[in-house]
Amino acid sequence: MLRELADILQAEELCNTQGDNVQIDIACACDLMSDVLLHAKAQCLLLTGLTTTQSVYTAEVADIKVICFVRGKRPQRDVVELATNKNIILLATHLPMFESCGKLYRNGIKGCSEV
C-alpha cells in the first residue's frame, strides 16, 4: 500500500488523487526518461531526480502511477498540477537515489527486469 511505501522512503506526499489503495510491487530508478520508456514496466514506481513536466508525461504514457523524487528535489507547482490532472501520485524524499533503491529492495520491491 502507498502509506507503507512512503514510510520506507521517508517521503512526503505532494499530490494524490488515488488514495492509499495503490499496490506497488516493482520499481524503476532512472533520470533518463527515454530509458524509463524503454525499460519500466506498467504499474511500477518511478524513482527519479528529474522534476520537470517530462517526468509526469513519461509516467502517464508508460502507465506508471507513482513518482518519487529523490535527493530532496521538489518540482514546480505546474508539475504538481499536471500530475494531479493526470492522476499520478507524487512523492518526495530527501534520500539519495541509491539509499532509496536499497530500502525499497530490502522491503521486497522488485526491479522491472525481475518480474
Binding site: D31, L32, M33, S34, D35, L37, L38, T48, T52
Partner: peptide
C-alpha cells in the same frame, strides 16, 4: 531534461 539518450 531527461531526453537525448539516443533511445528514441
Amino acid at each position: 531534461l531527461g531526453f537525448g539518450a539516443g533511445m528514441g
